[in-house]
Amino acid sequence: MARRDIRSIWLSAYGVGCGAGFLALAGVLLVLDLRSDQARLDGWFSPLFVVVALLAALFSVRSFAEEERTGSLEILTTMPLGRGQLVAGKILGTSGALMIALAITVVCPLMVALVGNPDPGPILTGYVGLVLAGVAFASVGVAVSAATGSFLVAASGSSAILLALWFGGVLARGLSGRLQTVLAYLSPYSHVTGFLRGTLAVADVVYFLSLAVVGVLATRLVLEARR
């Protein structure tokens, strides 16, 4: 199932277009980051998390919404697969497609390493963060995609949810007290700082894995409700 989804994304004009756009944007962000005249990539990784969220939203619409639109969802549900396997396959497929896009962006740090001397630690943790965030974002996107048969609603819905989660953390900085603490913790914005500075914190890893599990559960519940 996962392999089928990865192929269907990357062999479609839609997937290639989204992927090429993502890579071009990553290149622009790299040049903007290097304007500080320092061989450091934290300023590149930081906006890349937002771009990965948007790409996850765009890729995940093909998991259920597109299947439903083309009528192939019914065939899928009649296949000898458990619901859990179906959900896991869909999330793995979308995440796998995202990982391919992320793997191609390795060109950017490699180019910086060729002309400068960047610290490899923050680059490694930056990619660990992108992979974890990519899986979590894909999982949320798949859940939204399962809830609607409309391609457009699924794309805009998951983008809106992911961006709201992200900017909730930005807004939380202006608040105080327990509300600020809870809002900040719920936002991926607060959990990427560690990866950017070159550290792997347990709370950040647990957060993104939890978000992925929430996506799996939500997808499973949505499919059950729609049965």
């Binding site: 610290d119 490899p120 630690g121 923050p122 560690g194 500075r197 550290t199 914190a201 347990v202």
Partner: peptide, 10 residues
């Protein structure tokens, strides 16, 4: 309890 692993050079 938020332990962390620092991979930065310094």
């Amino acid at each position: 309890h938020n332990p962390q692993l620092d991979l930065s050079a310094e």
